[in-house]
Design a binder for these strands. Structure first.
Lengths: 353, 353
DNA sequence: CTGAAGTAGAAAAACGTTTGTGCCAGGAAA
DNA sequence: TTTCCTGGCACAAACGTTTTTCTACTTCAG
C-alpha cells in the first residue's frame, strides 16, 4: 500500500505527516473528489445516494480530514477573515471592543486578524494592503487616529470597512456614541452640583472625539449661562501626563476651577494624581469627571465619575455592520449611535465654597 | 481592448474591479508570469535582463499589483499567520503580551490571528483546527487554563506551538517567570518588614501558576521559621470577588494576619476593596501584596506592591521562539524563564503592633 | 420501442501563485 | 565547423479546493 510506504518514509525522514486532501478522501471512499466536496458542503443541486454519502462521511472520520483553508479561499475568493486595527491594545479602551468583535465574528465563522498600528501610518497602510492581497475580506478601524487618507483609500478601493468610535463624512459605516451629548450631560451634571468654574482638558482637537467633547462642554456652560473662559480649556492628548500638566496650570490661575471635565479617563487619572501630590483633595477641593468608564475608574480612590461607553456593544455592532456589508446587503444603512450613561462615583461633589 | 470592455462591464454591473493578477502583469510587461514571479521574489537562480526587470517593475507600479496571499500560501504551503489564544483579552494581563507578540510577528512578516477562548474547551479546539486547516502555521497559547488535552493534541500533531506563562512537562517550548521564586521573594520581603502572620490567597490549585506561587509562599515562611497555618491559606480563582471573600474570612480569625500575599493583582484588589468597606486600613492594619503588576497597581490608592512580570518581553520572547520553531531550527532549545522584580509601593508596611 | 427526463456521479476547468524543466540563441572552446 | 556552455526566458505542472459541464445509466410516458 502506498499509505504504508508513505508513513514509513515520513517516519524515516522525520517529516510531518502529509496533509490529507480531498483526493485521499475520494480514493478511500471510491468516488470523485468533486462528489466529496459536494457532500461536505451540503450542495443540494446534485443528488448523492445515501450509501455513497455514508462512505464519504466515514472516510472523513477515518482520515480526520480538515479542508485546506487556503485552497478553499482561493477558489471561493473568500478568506473568512477580517482585520481589526487598533492604535494600542494596551489602552484599556480597546480590549472590550476587540472582545465584542471577536465574539460576533467567530460566531459567524470569521476569524479575527488583529493589527496594532501604534498610530503609525506606515503600519496602517500595510494593513490596508492585507485587504488588497485578499488576506482579509474587510477591515474594522477602531481608532480615532486613523488617517483620513486611509479612509479615503478604502473608499476608493471600494472595499468593506467600518469605523469604530469615529465618524467620517465619506461614509455611513461607523459606530459611535454621541460624544457631544454625553459631554454635555456631564457638564450639566457638574452645573447641577453647583459648580460654576468648570474646566476642561480636551483630547487632541484634530480628532472628532476631542472636538465633540469640547463642544458638549461649551454647550453645557452656555445653557447654564456660564461665561466661556479661554483659560479653563487646555488641549491634552488623551494620555495621563497631559492631564497632570493641565491641572497644574489650572490650579495656578487666580480663580482656579472647582470642577474638571476631562475628555477621557486617562486625563482624569493624571489630573487626580497631580492633585494628590499638590495636596488638593478630590472631590472636596476639585471635582473630576472622566470619560469612557474604563475598568480602572471603579478601582481608583476616589472612584472616578465617568461616562459609560458601551465598548462591548460597540465592538459587536461594528462587527455586525461589517458582516452586513460583506453579505452585500446593499440597503444603505445609517450610522449606528450607541447610548451612554453618566456613572456617578466619588470623584465629584458639590463645590465646598 | 479587453480592458476597456471589462471596465465598462464592471461599471455597468456595479462590480468591484477585478483583482489584477500576475497574468495581467505579464501581459503588460510582455513576459511570462513565471518571469514576473521570479523578479518579484528576487529569485537569484535565474537571470533576467535589466531591461526586462524594469518593464516588469514598471507594470507593477502601473497596475498597482499586490500578490494574492491565498494563492501564494496555497502554493508555498505557508500562510504567514500565527494564532494567539488568550482566555480573556479584557484581563489586563494579556494586552501587553499580545502587543509584544504582534510587534515581533509583524516585523517578521507574519500576521496575528487573535482568538479569545473564554476558557471554553470547544473554542480552544476550534482554534487548533485552524492549524490543521493551514490557516495558521503555529500557535501561541497564552493561558494558564489551557487544557492539557489541547497541548497533547498539538504535540501529537507535531505542529509548532509555544506556551506563554505556563510550563508543561511534554515540551520545552514555553516562556514563563519563576513564580515560585518570585512569590518566595515577596514572602521574604513581608517577613523582612516584620510580619509573622502572613496569609495567602492563592490561584486555582489546578494551575501551575497557582501552585508555584503557593509553594513560594510556604518556602518563604519556612525559611523564616514561621509555622505554616492551614487557616491562613485560601484558594481563590484569580478574580476580584474571591479576593474579597478571602479577606473577610481571614479577618474573622482569632489571630488575623497582618499581611496578605495575593497570588495576583485582582485578588489583591478585591481584598483591598473589602478592607475599605470593613474599615481595615491598608497598610497600617494589613499589608497587601499582589502579583503581575498590571497597570492598575500604580493607579489604586494605596498603590499596590506587586511583582513585575515582563509581559511585553514575554510576548516577544514567545513569538521569537515560535518563529524559531517555524524556521525549523531543530536545535532543541530549553524553556525561557524571564526575571521578575518586586515593585514596592504603598500597600505594604511594617506591622503596627 | 423510442425518446425524454431524471438520477448519480465523473471530468475538467478554474482560482493565482511558484518552481522544475525545457528551449533557443549566441559566444567560447575544440 | 561542430560541440558546449550559459544567459534569458517560456512552458507547464503543481498547490487543494469548488463548480460548471458532461456522461452514463435508469425509468417512465407515449
Amino acid at each position: 500500500m502506498t499509505t504504508a510506504a508513505d508513513s514509513k518514509d515520513e517516519a524515516r525522514l522525520g517529516l510531518r505527516r502529509r496533509r490529507v486532501t480531498l483526493h485521499d478522501l475520494a480514493k478511500v471512499a471510491g468516488v470523485d473528489p468533486s462528489t466529496v466536496s459536494r457532500v461536505l458542503n451540503g450542495d443540494r443541486t446534485l443528488v448523492v445516494k445515501d450509501e455513497t454519502r455514508r462512505r464519504i462521511l466515514d472516510a472523513v472520520e477515518e482520515l480526520q480530514y480538515v479542508p485546506n483553508a487556503m485552497a478553499r479561499g482561493l477558489r471561493r475568493q473568500r478568506s473568512q477573515m477580517i482585520g481589526l486595527l487598533v492604535p494600542d491594545i494596551a489602552n484599556p479602551f480597546f480590549p472590550e471592543i476587540i472582545l465584542g468583535a471577536e465574539r460576533v465574528f467567530s460566531e459567524a465563522g470569521y476569524r479575527l486578524l488583529l493589527g496594532n498600528t501604534s498610530e503609525d501610518p506606515e503600519k496602517e497602510h500595510a494593513y490596508v494592503e492585507l485587504l488588497r492581497s485578499n488576506v482579509v475580506e474587510g477591515l474594522m478601524l477602531a481608532t480615532a487616529f486613523t488617517q483620513d487618507e486611509t479612509v479615503e483609500e478604502l473608499t476608493r478601493l471600494g472595499v468593506p470597512y467600518v469605523l469604530v468610535n469615529r465618524a467620517h463624512a465619506g461614509t455611513s459605516n461607523y459606530v459611535v456614541v454621541d460624544d457631544r451629548v454625553a459631554s454635555r450631560g456631564t457638564a450639566d451634571y457638574l452645573v447641577g452640583l453647583g459648580h460654576r468654574r468648570i474646566a476642561h482638558v480636551s483630547g487632541p482637537l484634530y480628532t472628532e472625539t476631542g472636538l465633540a467633547r469640547l463642544r458638549g462642554y461649551r454647550e453645557g456652560l452656555r445653557a447654564a449661562g456660564i461665561e466661556y473662559r479661554e483659560e479653563y480649556v487646555i488641549e491634552g492628548d488623551f494620555k495621563e501626563a497631559s492631564g497632570a500638566r493641565a491641572i497644574e496650570r489650572l490650579l495656578k490661575l487666580d480663580e482656579p476651577p472647582t470642577a474638571l471635565l476631562a475628555a477621557n479617563d486617562l486625563l482624569a487619572l493624571g489630573a487626580m494624581g497631580a492633585c494628590r501630590s499638590l495636596g488638593v483633595r478630590v472631590p472636596q477641593d476639585l471635582s473630576i469627571a472622566g470619560f469612557n468608564d474604563v475598568p480602572f475608574c471603579s478601582m481608583v480612590t476616589p472612584a472616578l465619575t465617568s461616562v459609560r461607553v458601551p465598548r462591548l456593544e460597540m465592538g459587536m455592532a461594528s462587527a455586525r455592520r461589517l458582516l452586513d456589508l460583506l453579505s452585500g446587503s446593499d440597503a444603505l444603512q445609517s450610522p449606528i449611535v450607541l447610548g451612554t450613561e453618566l456613572v456617578v462615583r466619588d470623584s465629584t461633589a458639590p463645590p465646598s465654597r
